[in-house]
Design a protein around this nucleic acid. Structure first.
Lengths: 358, 358
DNA sequence: TTGTACGCGTTATCAG
DNA sequence: CTGATAACGCGTACAA
């Protein structure tokens, strides 16, 4: 037994013509009533409005879009919304766009996967008003990404959350990750740490390279030993953190264990903390750790995780604003750097004060 | 100095007419070439394709949408993507939709806020193929929501993640939260706990009511005391958890403290754990705790958090599938219930075995 | 103040 | 196989 007319969409779709006919006016008048701008005789207005209300008529956005040749939509491309860091970015971008009467269209592009032409085609096909590529992308080799951005950039303004790169034709918003990591290392040094290791991420590639560089730079600047056994790459999530700690410590005599860890990000730190405790270490007494991203759970780890805030919301809001303004004013590409902020909690032993360490 | 022709979108927009003219054919033929379905003489095909490639022409999706009267888009309404639970749901829905060639349009509708007509108008205006309302919504009074859903339901199929309700005309997917909480309480009881408290959420309203009911039901069934001082509502996030613990314990002599906590969800549990430790309690020895949602960080709390898995991904995938099939087959509304699964970790003392407790 | 007619970019239909 | 032409639903000149 089939159900009929369950949805109005199943009935004859209601168009502006239907309203016009039923109200005994032209479609132009209906438009006038709805927009409210033009002047309509009060009696006609009422008559038309009555019909509109009666049927609950709402004009089709797709027809409107066609009419004025745009979407009022901005495409957002990120690796995975599951990652709270990207959720945070997305959320701020969404909010900012909405405030300007724009919508946002989310596209997940998993890390490690090749950038397919079909994604770019999709974005072009939709006639978006701009595209915002956010991070995670440069942390790994991403075949095809730069070409994709450059092609897409011929159709709409683009903002990317990444350090500026040669031949990358878009607005780049980024953090000075080198100085960010140097900041972290310095914090640990001030607290007395001398054997410091870096875990997670990937020291060679893309944006991660900057962190690795910062790490090494600061070690040198402080005159600390630069032991290759103290670099353990591996990934961007909590499991990577667990594994990194395991590999790091199992490869070293106890006497040579570092006293502090710089984690690629908070997720890596989260995993590291678990593994460190499992080994029986007390935090921060036996091992200090610092994360990056200042995620919501930093307050709730035990001990609370000291971290670097990269100010993702501000980046996201800038991105949207620049996108909209670039569309209007045809702004030439530029780049914008933000400093990171150290958020001191307890995982580095700040409360314990300075200690002389082996 | 203004930049010119930076984006192709700034130039005269390339349409199918332009391609047709330049290739010396009609627009119909261009369409045929692009779709590949109809038969075109190879030589013409090549000729047309050459022009297409030359200019990188991509047909406008908005015109296509107008033509076939649909979007291939499903609207998703959730409180906040920042909450990892909803991110998880969204992600699964997105993936499922994509697999069927559909897109997803995210709309955040903060809890506690009234459902504006403008949101519903927006959804209707876009001529979506369906809408998926997900949770958090029924946890609080939501003036206007039911009316909104019922109005929207006249235009497109709707799936909601909530228990079926009278006068709510949509497909409801839900968990049996009553039995879910009873399950949790039983787990604690088996481990020896006799004084059990419930924190977070709201016992009276909507979906939360079911949890509160389950809590009370199981206490009664087990012959445990039902002490009003053991119910502490308050919210859905980590901070709420902190406050709830504070209020709960400060209002009770130590001898009457519960030995176990049922938290509304994992975020509440996260906050509770922090506060419990701050008070100096050992977990799970001095206080057991069980969460709900089985979020990613459950593995990484200390101790790892025992939780209930509500299988959000399965719900989300069902939702999308039902939405698409409802559109095609005009299925009558129905409801679908899923059981929750207990995921035992260490926060309830399962490793310690049964203990006789005060 | 109101109506007519056309354009927006595609696809589909129907001739040829 | 190919080309006109009519939809699709709306806004907007332009005319009345």
């Amino acid at each position: 037994m089939a159900y009929r007319r369950m949805y109005k969409s199943m009935e004859k779709k209601l168009t502006i013509y239907d309203i016009a006919k039923e109200a005994g006016v032209s479609t132009a008048t209906v438009t006038r009533v709805m927009s409210g701008h033009a002047s309509v005789r009060p009696s006609t207005r009422e008559k038309v409005q009555a019909v509109i209300d009666l049927h609950g008529y709402t004009p089709s956005a797709i027809a409107q879009d066609l009419e004025n040749g745009k979407n009022k939509t901005i495409g957002i491309i990120l690796p995975e919304i599951i990652n709270p860091y990207f959720a945070q970015l997305f959320n701020a971008a969404d909010d900012e766009a909405r405030q300007s009467g724009y919508s946002v269209w989310l596209n997940q592009l998993p890390s490690y996967e090749r950038v397919e032409d079909s994604l770019v085609d999709d974005l072009i096909r939709r006639r978006l008003d701009g595209a915002f590529f956010m991070g995670g992308i440069w942390e790994t080799q991403r075949p095809g990404l730069m070409e994709a951005i450059n092609r897409l950039g011929q159709y709409m303004p683009i903002v990317a959350l990444c350090p500026p790169q040669a031949n990358l034709n878009c607005i780049c918003l980024y953090n000075d990750l080198t100085s960010c990591v140097r900041h972290a290392v310095r914090h640990l040094h001030v607290l007395g740490h001398r054997r410091i290791a870096f875990i997670g991420g990937s020291l060679q590639v893309g944006g991660s390279g900057a962190r690795g560089q910062g790490f090494l730079d600061e070690l040198r600047a402080l005159g600390l030993p630069d032991d290759p056994a103290y670099h353990h790459e591996g990934g961007f999530d909590a499991e990577s953190g667990e594994r990194a700690v395991q590999r790091l410590l199992s490869g070293l005599e106890k006497s040579r264990w570092p006293t502090a860890l710089v984690a690629f990000n908070d997720l890596v730190a989260l995993g590291a903390i678990k593994q460190l405790k499992q080994i029986g270490l007390k935090l921060p007494e036996d091992m200090a750790i610092i994360g990056c991203d200042n995620q919501f759970f930093c307050t709730y780890t035990d001990p609370p995780l000291t971290s670097m805030d990269l100010h993702p919301e501000e980046h996201a809001r800038s991105a949207i604003r620049e996108l909209l303004s670039a569309k209007d004013h045809n702004t030439p590409p530029f780049n914008l750097m933000r400093d990171a902020t150290l958020v001191v909690r307890e995982s580095c032993g700040a409360k314990l004060g300075y200690r002389k360490m082996g």
